[in-house]
Amino acid sequence: MKYRILFTLVFCVVSAGAWAQGMMIKINYSPSMPLGNTADFTSNFSGRGANFEFLKMSNNRFGFGVEAGTVNFYEEVPDQLLESGTVTVHGNQFRYMKMTPLMASAIFFFTESGPVRPFASIAAGLSINTRTRNMGIFVEKVANNQIGFRPELGAVFELSDYVGIKVSGKYYQTFENSAMPSQSWLGFNVGFVMLNFNN
């Protein structure tokens, strides 16, 4: 339910300002590689990732906004033990890790204009993480919210004054708390960009 509310709010903000000057909207496909504790739990590269960004541009080089996304990692690990109360189960373990970052972001373009616009971006906020181990009828699930941040480097290739293609790399890092260790992953983003810079 909370995801529907968030989506509705983001949609309303975008709809109200999409045609105003100084806006940038990015819709990204984001295959990702787990790192650190995330890779210890699920080591497989994932093609199940996407994120959405809405930015208000102060000028042609700097802007700030919000980001929402999701990435899902999965791995089948053979010859594992799962203990639940007084029962111990042995067999193949199915591991799932889902991260949903919701962050405030800022972006800086290195050039004023041109067909290729390299940029750097940084974001910080919340990551809603869910870790699941599944062995037959036994399921162990931990859901937790962690504070996190992410830097990004990339470029926008402008196809016209209003449309572009984006490629970038995003490194996500969350901070450990009592329920879950820190998590990290690297996202490789390819996206569609709607532009309307102030002139």
Score class of each variant (00 low, 15 high):
Val13Gly: 13
Arg117Leu: 12
Ala20Val: 04
Glu75Ser: 14
Lys166Tyr: 04
Asn60Lys: 14
Gly36Asp: 12
Asn177Tyr: 10
Ala106Ser: 11
Ser15Gln: 13
Pro78Met: 04
Arg95Cys: 07
Gln80Gly: 00
Glu75Pro: 13
Glu67Leu: 14
Tyr171Trp: 11
Val156Glu: 02
His90Phe: 12
Phe110Asp: 09
Glu152Trp: 05
Lys170Ile: 07
Phe138Thr: 10
Met103Asn: 12
Lys56Asn: 06
Asn129Met: 14
Val77Phe: 02
Ser32Lys: 01
Leu55Phe: 13
Glu83Lys: 10
Glu67Pro: 01
Phe192Ile: 08
Val66Asn: 00
Val193Ala: 05
Ser30His: 04
Gly65Asp: 07
Gly85Pro: 01
Glu53Cys: 07
Met99Lys: 07
Glu112Asn: 15
Tyr29Pro: 03
Val71Phe: 00
Ala39Met: 03
His90Gly: 09
Ala18Val: 15
Met99His: 09
Asp40Thr: 13
Glu158Met: 12
Met97Ala: 15
Pro31Phe: 00
Pro31Ile: 05
Gly49Phe: 02
Leu82Asp: 06
Asn145Gln: 09
Phe192Gly: 06
Met180Asp: 04
Glu83Phe: 04
Phe45Leu: 11
Ser182Trp: 06
Val167Trp: 00
Met1Asn: 10
Glu75Asn: 13
Phe73His: 01
Phe110Pro: 09
His90Thr: 15
Pro115Cys: 00
Phe45Asp: 07
Ala123Asn: 05
Leu81Asp: 10
Ala155Cys: 12
Trp19Gln: 11
Ile128Arg: 15
Leu81Met: 09
Gly63Asp: 01
Asn72Arg: 15
Ala18Ser: 08
Lys141Phe: 03
Arg150Met: 08
Ile5Ala: 12
Leu195Asp: 04
Ser32Leu: 02
Val142Asp: 11
Val13Asn: 11
Gly148Tyr: 04
Val10His: 14
Phe149Trp: 11
Gly85His: 03
Ala155Pro: 12
Ile27Leu: 13
Ser182Ile: 01
Ile5Thr: 11
Leu186Phe: 10
Tyr172Asp: 00
Leu102His: 08
Asn129Tyr: 13
Leu35Ala: 08
Glu75Trp: 06
Ile128Gly: 09
Ala39Leu: 01
Gly154Glu: 03
Glu75Tyr: 07
Val167Leu: 14
Thr8Cys: 11
Phe7Asn: 12
Thr130Gln: 11
Tyr74Arg: 12
Ser168Glu: 00
Ala50Gln: 11
Ala120Arg: 04
Ala16Asp: 10
Ser58Cys: 05
Tyr172Gln: 05
Thr174Met: 01
Val13Thr: 14
Lys98Gln: 13
Gly169Arg: 04
Glu152Gly: 04
Pro181Gln: 08
Ile128Glu: 11
Asp79Gly: 01
Met33Lys: 04
Pro101Lys: 08
Phe62Ala: 08
Asn59Glu: 00
Asn28Gln: 07
Met24Leu: 01
Glu152Thr: 09
Asn129Arg: 14
Ala106Arg: 03
Phe45Arg: 08
Leu102Gln: 12
Gly154Cys: 04
Asp79Gln: 08
Gly85Tyr: 02
Asn198Gln: 10
Phe41His: 06
Ser43Ile: 00
Met180Arg: 02
Asn72Trp: 14
Ala68Ile: 15
Asn198Asp: 08
Gln173Glu: 05
